[in-house]
Design a protein around this nucleic acid. Structure first.
Lengths: 163, 163
DNA sequence: GATCAGTAATTGACTGAGCAGCGAACTTCC
DNA sequence: GGAAGTTCGCTGCTCAGTCAATTACTGATC
């Protein structure tokens, strides 16, 4: 395999123009832009970040059932240290409360405060508006169900391998 | 609209369990995990980040055609200051070079070095492997083409509204 | 041709994340 | 019941990004 500059430039151009690269870029770009869009709308209108909304969603899903920071970290695709600091900020803001676990003195259970639940209600409306406009709106109903099915398959593959 | 704690908790649970929330979460989670997967593989095997690969892809796409930092920022969903520092690191690593634009003395054109093109070739192989395994592999051919079509529609909607 | 609004890149201060390493608490196994 | 290994959350440090302000340049308008 000899490599002249000429040859390399052509090979690089070929790699950069591969349809796989383009398609995958589309996924990353769309997800990034959507998240940024929601994050800035939430900050502007509700004063919380998108990550905080995710936490509130996980906490309020099944009422009465407390969730540990470890479980939150897994659900948020975050490290445990990142979760610690995130919950620090949310506790400071009065959105959540840490409660020692009765069964295991290492774990800190996290539960939403009344303010946290109220914040969730407001934020969910903003979230729904943006998702409706840029995620559901541009697609036909059929494409939408296919898309979520495909994402579920990808998610499953990612979870099966290591984790 | 009166709000008892009881009422609020139920409303919060309903919001948190909305299918829209779940579906959108799937998109964000899948994209995040995929990107993390690729980023760590690239760092381990090639010593560059996923963002740097994106830069090299944009630069090598059309050979001979230089690209300004502004164009890079748009293509990467990054701010201009973030791009400045990213290009700083890449220039330091010998992957790219800044060239003053002949037509407009404000803009810095960026072009790949020979090392940059070589790095792209190695990184593209790693990228392709991961994408193949977790993006293309889990889907049928039909679902794949539908998925990319749907993502393109979302991307279009995002671009149309405000830039 | 002077001025003035707009744009490109940079810099300083800050933020939210990761990694590595810590102590405390739990589990397993003898 | 103790030793060894594991898990949970926390902390110091670093990194890659943002925002806001700055400088340098361009192009339109009077």
């Amino acid at each position: 395999m000899n490599s002249t500059p000429q040859h390399d430039a052509e090979a690089a151009a070929r790699a950069a123009n591969s349809p796989l690269v383009r398609d995958f870029g589309l996924l990353i770009t769309s997800a990034t832009r959507l998240e940024q869009r929601i994050d800035s709308a939430l900050r502007r209108e509700c004063g919380i970040s998108h990550t905080m909304l995710e936490v509130l969603i996980l906490l309020c899903r099944r009422s009465g059932e407390e969730i540990s920071q470890r479980q939150l970290a897994d659900g948020l695709t975050l490290t445990s240290s990142g979760t610690t600091r995130l919950i620090d900020r949310m506790e400071e803001a009065g959105l959540v409360r840490r409660v020692p676990s009765p069964g295991d003195r290492r774990v800190a259970l996290v539960e939403p405060t009344a303010d946290g639940r109220t914040a969730l209600l407001g934020a969910a409306a903003v979230h729904a508006r943006v998702v409706e406009e840029f995620f559901v709106g541009p697609l036909t109903a059929d494409d939408y169900t296919r898309l979520t099915g495909a994402l579920a398959a990808i998610d499953r593959a990612l979870r099966e391998d290591t984790g």
